[in-house]
Design a protein around this nucleic acid. Structure first.
Length: 422
RNA sequence: GUGGGCGUAGCUCAGUUGGUUAGAGCGCCUGGUUGUGGUCCAGGAGGCCGGGGGUUCGAAUCCCCUCGUUCACCCCA
């Protein structure tokens, strides 16, 4: 293969039609669900002061080694970073604008992490998500989880599992962390080297190890759910009761920890069971009751999730659901008189709101018909010398078996719109 | 960052124990007696076999390096 001079940077890719149309449709579908739930869209900058993301946690790989950061041209230069996720930006925006709580917002857009690309993992990837800031009520947790669930269902996905856990809060997590650390340290000899390193930085993350050698120690580890304070346990129970009431199935996953350090209490993840790859988490989220305060805002509880657009589409492929949108071109104008008649006809059709396309370069009728077929348009309008002389056009059905007929040129837009509403 | 697989036409892949002008299918283009696609038939365009170095009389085929890609660990959506 002749090497092109340039190619998309590692871990990024061009998303071309028709895949691009499918992604747009997916985001539209999410916007519908978010809107139904009373969430408004926030569009925040793609880069922020590096400090915004540093608040996500010193033991989070996403901030410590996966950030695309750079200095601007200011004096002194500002240290900026492409956003590796959006929750921090949203909390920064909340602290900056102080909207009236509860602030219910949704977002979508690209995010950036400097990682080794892999199945379902890219350096530039897209997420859709929601955040509810300023509501401590477990009802808010349920609403948020139910929204994600509805969204997956609306796409046609059936093989998605909800994993649920509570990570406790500052009143009870320290005691658990001590117990966990004790357990892991006393069994350190049985852990892999990598897990021993992780243990130094963040014992919780050891529970996430996929290395088989670690499993016996992990299986024997104490569970956060056994250490929850009364308040936290009550909150967790309320969330579960709400999900039960909505008949949303879930599995309690007591070893579910998440990669960002800010999570407290309710924590959840959505796994696409149809995906055979290691990256089968199509969404995740939870509570982050301390994050707004960390970013200089008022103490504000928060709950939200982020869903990976790329992985959701992979899951849709695996389940063979959510095909792309139907073609927007409804009628293809075949002009064998040279092409100038197609110009006016297409414009008139478009004025009437009917998607119309034509070919260029004065190709043969056969060639133009091939392009018409390929366009996916259900109809073709054929214009030759005869039609021009008679002020008519031949309207041909490309998908059904009703053949073709000559109609007055004036009535083309009307006729097509009638046929399309059938 | 660590480890494995793979890199031949736009796409999916063949290429025999290294041997003359590198193949198929799909896609694309042009035709099939002059106005008709989706089926069929016939032609055609399109590859310095990822890049560099080496071994050899001779390398897509063997060796080394490099780049890319892919999968897994890690991390996470």
């Amino acid at each position: 293969m002749a090497e092109p001079t340039f190619r998309a940077p590692k871990g990024t890719r061009d998303i071309l039609p028709p895949e691009s149309g499918r992604r747009r449709a997916l985001i539209d579908a999410f916007a519908v669900q978010a809107g139904l739930g009373g969430f408004g869209e926030v569009m925040s900058p793609i880069f922020e002061d590096l400090g915004v993301f540093k608040r996500l946690g010193e033991s989070t790989d996403v901030v410590t080694k996966e950030m695309f950061d750079f200095f601007d041209k200011g004096d002194p230069p500002q240290h900026l970073a492409l956003r590796p996720e959006l929750t921090a930006s949203i909390c920064r925006a909340y602290a900056e604008h102080r909207p009236v709580p509860p602030w219910k917002i949704w977002y979508e857009g690209p995010q950036f992490r400097y990682e080794q690309p892999q199945a379902g993992r890219y350096r530039q990837f897209s997420q859709v998500g929601v955040e509810t800031l300023g509501a401590d009520d477990p009802q808010a947790d349920i609403d948020v989880i139910a929204l994600a669930w509805r969204f997956y269902e609306s796409l046609g996905l059936r093989q998605v599992s909800l994993l649920l856990n509570s990570l406790g809060d500052p009143s009870c997590r320290p005691a658990y962390m001590d117990a966990l650390r004790n357990h892991l340290e006393s069994s350190a000899a049985a852990l892999t080297d990598q897990s021993r390193v992780t243990l130094e930085r963040n014992p919780l993350r050891v529970l996430d190890s996929k290395r088989p050698e670690d499993q016996p120690v992990i299986d024997a580890a104490p569970l956060m759910v056994d250490y929850l304070s009364d308040d936290t346990a009550e909150h967790f129970a309320a969330v579960r009761a709400g999900l039960d009431a909505l008949e949303i199935p879930y599995q309690i996953s007591p070893r579910l920890v998440r990669g960002l350090d800010y999570y407290t209490r309710t924590t959840f993840e959505f796994a696409a069971d149809a995906l055979a790859t290691a990256q089968n988490a199509v969404g995740g989220g939870g509570r982050y009751d301390g994050l707004v305060e960390d970013l200089g805002g008022p103490a504000t509880p928060g709950i939200g999730f982020a869903l990976g657009v790329d992985r959701i589409l992979l899951a849709c492929d695996a389940e063979d659901v959510f095909p792309g949108p139907v073609p927007t071109v409804k009628i293809f104008v075949v002009d064998v008189t040279g092409g100038s008649h197609a110009l006016g006809v297409c414009n008139e059709l478009r004025d009437a709101g009917i998607g119309a396309d034509r070919s260029y370069g004065g190709r043969s009728m056969k060639a133009q018909m091939k392009v018409a077929d390929r366009s996916g348009a259900p109809f073709a309008a054929i214009i030759g010398e005869d039609e021009v002389a008679a002020g008519e056009v031949t309207l041909r059905d490309l998908r059904g078996d009703t053949g073709q007929r000559r109609i007055p040129l004036d009535s083309l837009a009307y006729e097509v719109s009638q046929l399309l509403t059938k």
